[in-house]
Amino acid sequence: MNEHHGQNDQEHHIVSPFIYLAILLCLLAATGLTVWASYIDLGEWHIARGVTLFWNPVVALAIACTKMILVVLFFMHVKYSPKLTKLTVISGVFIFLGLISMTLADYMSRAWGRW
């Protein structure tokens, strides 16, 4: 794939169409899997009194995250990108998760209706 490039050409890794095709098939399979899993009661886990984890949304989000990682790494070429790009992507995810968990921690720990 990576044959000779002219001096002024953009010298970047060219991802093979076969990899794109493989990722496409994985994404389609994951879509089927997430629809299938949504029809099954995957149960719940009582972590502590009043704290329950339902497996269905956890599985749905895990599949969605896997799909996102495949798209980011291969379709968006992050696997073959400079470290700066990788750092940018990771920091974006990190800040997003940080903001979401801080907001949720606030909402869940308030004494709603008691003031």
């Binding site: 879509t31 997430t34 629809v35 949504s38 029809y39 099954i40 009661d41 269905n56 949304p57 749905a60 989000l61 599949i63 969605a64």
Partner: peptide
């Protein structure tokens, strides 16, 4: 898609 469509479908 999972967040809007696939809530408690069983």
């Amino acid at each position: 898609f999972p967040l809007l469509y696939l809530i408690s479908r069983y």
